[in-house]
Design a protein around this nucleic acid. Structure first.
Lengths: 354, 354
DNA sequence: AGTTAGCACTCTCGTGGTTCGAGTGCTAAC
DNA sequence: GTTAGCACTCGAACCACGAGAGTGCTAACT
């Protein structure tokens, strides 16, 4: 026994790796502990079940496999999945057929970036049969591109901000005195000249310089303040929105039959703060990241795995796409799909702003 | 037995009603079948358990209560809930404390209607401990209030539509040739004069009249087409968005411990078509509507109840707020809260557009 | 050495029988 | 019309037990 433990601390030989893979693959599809016999029957291992048993024992000693109880088959541990993921994360390409399918779907959709996130989530969900996640690309600091004022009623106007990064924000502004659309339009034009291209900080400085005494700039001043505040809010907001699809896929997994675990996952998913942290971590990474079970920083997520990848332009606007599924999920499939979709989103963005 | 059945077909006497209420109240809190003894212990009925048993038997014969098995307590049937709901739906006021609390929360939030829906859903969820639902008020036919064109790149512009009803829509427009912001602004101004206040149908007629041969209106024409299409899409869209909160509350209910039922509910909730139908039905009703279990038109919803109320201005824009919970939910609480919130939303809208 | 067949051992799962208790429905007395 | 008393019913919990799956070990084989 001691001999085997020592041995396993080194890299695994090819046969052990193959068997580990087989166990994972089998367990992913059946959700049942897998025995030595099942392995030799279904995988061309070229050895007998007794030999496989010996290898399984080694893998277990190495902490890569587990044992629900003595007389049950093996189940991958989180370390097992981790080892497996490390070994395939570099390659894990998505089959061309599916690449084409995804491209086709994205080709169908309107040139409206909002749809992309939904579509990304939906696509990821249906291909991986897990839950698909996508956040819009949110700039770290917003730059105002354009603003617009539309009269709603006498003393109420809608202020619309268009950001350089493509997103839109609408707030209501109450006015001190009845104001016509014409005045609003004039104020908007005035402010556009002044503030276009600026960040919250720059805009604040510019607005502050407006002469308080001058009654002709009273309206622009008031609106300008509101613009600055909105930009600041935007910068401060952790995460705009999270699109998800296929949560039903996750619910259908047998490990979530008794819904307590499921509840925790949903709770974690509703927790925007946690998500924002996670996502900003991934956004910096620059590549696919995999969180397996308890590797996941949030305790509530300890029963699921996340495969996430950033997209967008580092330093400007970044978002995240990914997949959430049971720890027992097809990592090659998930990694391949997530990587491809994030790449595709990048392409689309480049194409849009080039 | 036969005598009792006949008797129960008439209206219930006061004591029977009180006992029915007690059973429902008890079952709603404990989720356990309730026996005659528990009732006399916890409710001041002034009679013995034997008498209560007789009444329970009557109520069962009348189809208002059920029996999981011979030696178990009583459980309300859907008819029982229905009878109960009918008897309280007229009153069911929300306690002033909670009214104040809700008003306070709505007072806190920015004058930005988008937040209202979220807040409505959240408020409903936390007060009823079920899931809160809210849809934005969607106009039956959109009227364009204002449009705006913002240059994104050489041949790409963002077209922003502001609707009379307050909602916003953004689409990207590809341009035939490189176009400056100045040209876009001119086109936007031109179209605003032409199209402000119009519906999709009217706008279509106006745009069609633009001279195809005249190169100076080529851009407005192109954009105008896009405007018309967007308005049409908006009119055609069944339901803009459904905000929900507190789905976790529903998941926590013991009747959903084994998640299959839960899955069906979530599936139904994702089904926009069904929701749209349901909501348009409620929107016409003009008051709180309650769907108990299988009264619910969607099969997947047969294990939950919905308490919904419309808000908004009939004929112009209407939305729906409501609560989704297990059939075993506190209907007085739900009805009171939903009614109050829908009333509050109406107040807010009136205040906004008055 | 590594591999394999054989075998005893262990542990879960499903089945059937038993007890326990909650709650009913009925009847006879008040 | 109400109540106490009581026999009866049925599910939940517990136990025992056999079947079956899968292991780990040993001894023989290549």
């Amino acid at each position: 026994m001691a001999r085997r433990v020592r041995r396993s601390s080194g890299p695994l030989d090819l046969r052990s790796q193959a068997i580990l893979r087989a166990v994972i693959e089998e367990y992913v599809t059946t959700a049942q502990p897998v025995g030595s016999q099942a392995l030799v029957e279904r995988y061309r291992l070229g050895v007998s079940s007794a030999t496989v048993r010996a290898v399984l024992a080694e893998l277990e000693a190495a902490g890569l496999l587990g044992h629900p109880h003595t007389s049950a088959g093996r189940v991958p541990t989180e370390h097992g999945y981790r080892y497996f993921v490390e070994s395939i994360i570099e390659s894990a390409p998505l089959p061309p057929v599916e690449q084409l399918m995804i491209r086709h779907q994205f080709g169908q959709v309107e040139y409206a970036s909002e749809h992309w996130f939904r579509l990304a989530a939906t696509t990821l969900a249906s291909l991986t049969r897990a839950a698909g996640l996508a956040t819009p690309a949110k700039p770290s600091t917003a730059h105002l591109r354009h603003l617009d004022l539309v009269s709603i009623s006498d003393r109420l106007a809608s202020l619309i901000l268009v950001l350089r990064e493509g997103s839109l924000k609408q707030v209501l502004v109450t006015l001190d005195e009845p104001t016509e659309q014409a005045e609003l339009s004039a104020a908007a034009a005035f402010l556009n000249d002044l503030l276009a291209g600026l960040t919250a900080a720059d805009a604040e400085r510019v607005v502050a310089r407006l002469d308080e005494a001058d009654p002709t700039v009273a309206l622009p001043r008031r609106v300008g303040d509101r613009v600055v505040r909105s930009l600041q809010e935007f910068d401060g907001a952790a995460i705009e929105e999270l699109f998800s699809d296929g949560l039903l896929n996750v619910m259908a997994a047998p490990e979530f039959a008794q819904s307590e675990k499921l509840r925790r996952v949903f709770a974690a998913l509703e927790n925007r703060v946690y998500l924002a942290e996670l996502i900003s971590g991934v956004a910096g990474a620059g590549t696919v990241r995999v969180f397996i079970g308890s590797e996941n920083p949030a305790e509530d997520m300890a029963d699921v795995s996340l495969v996430l990848a950033p997209y967008g332009r580092p330093g400007r606007a970044v978002g995240v796409v990914g997949v959430l599924g049971p720890t027992r999920m097809s990592y090659p499939q998930a990694i391949g799909t997530v990587r491809f979709v994030s790449g595709l989103m990048n392409e689309l963005i480049d194409h849009l702003y080039a």
